Simulated scan of single mutants.
Amino acid sequence: MTVVLGPNRYGKAETRVVRVTRDGEVHHLKDCNVGVSLSGAMEDVHRSGSNAAVLPTDSQKNTVYAFAKKYGIGQIEEFALLLARHFVESQPTIHHARVVVEEYSWERRGPHSFARSGTETRTCAVHHDRDGTSTVVSGLRDLVVLNSTGSEFHGFVQDEYTTLPPATDRVLATAVTARWRHVPAAGQAQPDFGKSYDEVRRCLLEAFAGTHSLSLQQTLFAMGARVLAEREEICEVRLELPNKHHFLVDLSPFGLDNDNEVYFAADRPYGLIEGTVLNDDAPDAGPAWD
C-alpha cells in the first residue's frame, strides 16, 4: 500500500473586518466576516513539516485588513475576487484560492449612526485558479418568510408511523438559505453584483409569496425557476428551506374555536427541503460550491 496526500487546503477563518468610509459628516459602514483557504504545492509541509511553501494564516488576516484600507469594501464579491487573485498571483506555491465573505446589514439612523437590521446575512464564495479562472457564488441566509395561507400538504405516503393529518390550509414558513452561481453576461466581464443581489432576492420573495404551495418542494422549484427566468447572469440556484412548523393550538378545553387563528411555532424538529434549479446548458461548476 502506498500512502499519498489527498486534497488539502489551509487558511484563516472568520476574520471580522468593519470598514468605515467617512464622507464628510456622512459615514458609510461595511461589516464583514472573511474566510480564506489556499491550496497548491503543499506536499512538503505535510510530509516533512517544511514551511517553505506556506503563507502564514496571520499574513492572510493582515492582507484582509490592508486591502480593506487600500481598496475599501464595495460589493463583497468584488472584494473577495481582489483577495483571491492577490493570493494566487503573488505566491508561486499557491495554485488556488477560495475566499468566502459574509456581510451583516446595518440600517442608517443618522449621518454616522446605525442599527443592525434583521437576521438576514448576505454571502459570497469566490474561487480563483492559477490559470486565471474565477467562479463566483453569491447568496443569502436566514431570510425569514411566512405565508399565513395558500399552502397545503396532502396525498403523501402513509405508513404505520404516520400521525400527521392532511392539510388544505396551513401556515408555510421558512428561513431561506440561497446560493446562486454567476456566468458572465454577453459582452460583460462581470455582473453588477449589487443589482444582481437585489434582483435575485426580489425574485425569491415574489415567487414565495405568489406560489400556491402543495409542497415546500414545489415552492423551492418556483423560487429557483423565477431567478433563472429573469436573471440571465445566473445559471444555477441552490436552496435550503427548513420547514418552520406552525401547529394549531387546541383551544377546545376553554370552550373556544380555533379557525386557523392561533398557532404554536415549533423550532425543532423541522423538515429540511434542499434542491438545485439550473439551466440544462449551465457550464460545469467545478469547485464553486465547495
Score class of each variant (00 low, 15 high):
residue 216 L to K: 05
residue 185 A to N: 04
residue 216 L to F: 12
residue 180 W to A: 04
residue 222 A to I: 06
residue 184 P to L: 01
residue 200 V to E: 09
residue 217 Q to N: 10
residue 197 Y to N: 11
residue 203 C to K: 05
residue 226 R to S: 11
residue 212 H to L: 10
residue 190 Q to G: 01
residue 205 L to I: 13
residue 189 A to D: 12
residue 198 D to T: 14
residue 194 G to A: 11
residue 203 C to D: 15
residue 195 K to D: 08
residue 220 L to Y: 02
residue 191 P to A: 07
residue 180 W to H: 03
residue 201 R to Q: 15
residue 179 R to W: 06
residue 173 A to E: 14
residue 194 G to W: 10
residue 186 A to K: 01
residue 192 D to C: 00
residue 207 A to E: 03
residue 176 V to W: 09
residue 201 R to D: 13
residue 209 A to H: 12
residue 179 R to I: 04
residue 201 R to L: 15
residue 220 L to F: 03
residue 187 G to C: 00
residue 176 V to L: 14
residue 213 S to M: 07
residue 218 Q to R: 15
residue 209 A to V: 10
residue 223 M to A: 08
residue 208 F to R: 03
residue 190 Q to H: 02
residue 170 R to K: 14
residue 210 G to H: 06
residue 178 A to Q: 09
residue 211 T to P: 06
residue 211 T to I: 04
residue 221 F to I: 13
residue 177 T to Q: 12
residue 189 A to Q: 03
residue 197 Y to T: 11
residue 184 P to M: 05
residue 196 S to H: 08
residue 220 L to D: 00
residue 186 A to I: 02
residue 189 A to K: 00
residue 202 R to D: 12
residue 202 R to G: 10
residue 228 L to T: 05
residue 192 D to I: 02
residue 187 G to K: 00
residue 192 D to S: 01
residue 199 E to D: 15
residue 210 G to N: 08
residue 180 W to E: 04
residue 174 T to G: 04
residue 170 R to Y: 08
residue 194 G to D: 13
residue 208 F to D: 01
residue 176 V to F: 09
residue 195 K to R: 14
residue 212 H to D: 05
residue 215 S to R: 09
residue 185 A to W: 00
residue 207 A to H: 04
residue 208 F to G: 01
residue 210 G to Y: 03
residue 177 T to Y: 08
residue 183 V to G: 00
residue 186 A to Y: 00
residue 208 F to E: 01
residue 169 D to Y: 08
residue 227 V to W: 03
residue 223 M to D: 09
residue 195 K to S: 12
residue 213 S to F: 07
residue 217 Q to L: 12
residue 221 F to L: 13
residue 227 V to E: 03
residue 226 R to K: 13
residue 200 V to P: 10
residue 209 A to E: 15
residue 185 A to E: 13
residue 183 V to Y: 02
residue 219 T to H: 01
residue 178 A to M: 07
residue 226 R to A: 15
residue 173 A to I: 05
residue 205 L to W: 09
residue 216 L to D: 10
residue 215 S to W: 09
residue 225 A to L: 14
residue 176 V to T: 10
residue 184 P to Q: 01
residue 219 T to D: 13
residue 177 T to W: 05
residue 217 Q to R: 13
residue 221 F to Q: 15
residue 180 W to N: 03
residue 206 E to A: 10
residue 209 A to W: 07
residue 202 R to V: 08
residue 194 G to S: 07
residue 184 P to F: 01
residue 196 S to M: 11
residue 200 V to N: 08
residue 224 G to A: 07
residue 179 R to T: 14
residue 220 L to N: 03
residue 213 S to C: 11
residue 201 R to V: 14
residue 199 E to I: 09
residue 191 P to F: 01
residue 180 W to F: 13
residue 193 F to R: 02
residue 187 G to F: 00
residue 194 G to I: 05
residue 204 L to I: 08
residue 184 P to W: 00
residue 228 L to Y: 03
residue 183 V to H: 00
residue 172 L to S: 11
residue 212 H to I: 07
residue 171 V to W: 04
residue 191 P to C: 05
residue 213 S to A: 15
residue 222 A to R: 09
residue 196 S to V: 13
residue 177 T to E: 14
residue 206 E to M: 11
residue 226 R to L: 12
residue 173 A to V: 06
residue 207 A to V: 06
residue 179 R to F: 04
residue 170 R to H: 09
residue 227 V to Q: 05
residue 178 A to N: 06
residue 189 A to Y: 02
residue 188 Q to M: 07
residue 176 V to E: 11
residue 220 L to H: 03
residue 183 V to S: 05
residue 214 L to R: 12
residue 210 G to F: 00
residue 186 A to R: 01
residue 221 F to S: 14
